[in-house]
Design a protein around this nucleic acid. Structure first.
Length: 276
DNA sequence: TTTGGTGTTTCGAG
DNA sequence: CCTCGAAACACCAA
């Protein structure tokens, strides 16, 4: 669920919530798989006493850098949430890891589907090193995008979802970007013209930035729905043109939107704007 | 009540 | 190198 804009929103909230400079004064682990290969004892022992220096995002990872050589990498996967909340508030059954801060508040990892991970490591590059470029960074250029696109004989949809090709995109923003650029999800990357490659580059940056500007996309009301660290829903759902709009009319040409499966993922297209 | 689908990633087989 | 299917897990809508 959380893609680049949602993860960035969480990071922004954590910083606004005053996490920088706080000390972790204890940890409780209620679901061991949430912390990777460490035991709860190792995790608690290592993280207790750590002072938070920076909070940042890389791809869909939230990274908490401590003043020591230790880093906490957090991946929310499908349903993870991070919330800052007073320690006095009763815990919820979906809160699998709780970090106690030195101001009577907790940073709690809430994850209904338990796919998310908090990885404590002094070698973050073993996880972050294989990720593709950040689509919104200044050094990710349209020329670079054209070059890497040309080298891939893969369908656009699974390629754009591949975090080693480009970082941060998920099902929602890929569908939106492909619609913006009028490209079919099954088109082979290497066959995209330079002009259309530039359109796709601009579309990716546009939909992601719009998502960030609106604090992310929240759909529906379920347990897995996105909420920020301030427990707020995102405001970007109203900007979606195609995602989960099956049967609605394309805002550009009024053709009925269709849902197809590409690379085992549901994809939403306008059959007129996005020719195979 | 049961089934199928869900916004992510990783793994192994072919 | 690429593609596919399955698995990790809980919930929700039909």
């Amino acid at each position: 669920m959380p893609e680049l804009p949602e993860v960035q929103t969480v990071v922004n909230d954590l910083i606004a919530g005053g996490l920088i400079g706080k000390t972790i004064c204890g940890a409780d682990v209620f679901w061991n798989k949430s912390i990777g290969n460490l035991t709860s004892g190792e995790f608690s022992e290592t993280i207790t006493g750590q002072i938070i220096m920076t909070v940042r995002r890389r791809a869909k990872y939230i990274i908490i850098d401590f003043k020591s050589a230790v880093h906490l990498l957090i991946h929310l996967r499908m349903s993870g949430r991070l919330i800052i909340i007073p320690t006095s508030v009763e815990t919820n059954k979906h809160e699998h890891v709780i970090l106690h801060l030195n101001d009577n508040r907790d940073l709690r990892f809430h994850d209904t589907r338990k796919f998310g991970r908090m990885i404590l490591t002094d070698k973050p590059d073993t996880i972050l090193g294989n990720l593709g470029p950040e689509p919104l960074s200044a050094d990710f250029t349209v020329a670079q995008f054209k070059t890497i696109l040309k080298s891939k004989h893969r369908q656009l949809k699974p390629l754009l979802l591949d975090q080693t090709f480009i970082a941060g995109l998920g099902n929602i923003y890929v569908d939106e970007a492909l619609w913006e650029a009028r490209l079919h999800p099954q088109k082979i990357a290497a066959t995209v013209s330079p002009k259309k490659a530039a359109d796709l580059y601009n579309a990716i940056r546009y939909v992601l930035q719009q998502g960030i500007d609106n604090q992310g996309t929240s759909l529906g009301n379920g347990q897995s729905n996105f909420t920020s660290a301030e427990n707020q829903r995102g405001n970007n759902a109203g900007n979606l043109k195609i995602f989960r709009k099956t049967g609605h009319l394309c805002p550009r040409c009024q053709t009925k939107i269709e849902r197809i499966i590409v690379g085992q993922r549901s994809s939403h297209i306008c059959p007129k704007c996005q020719k195979a």
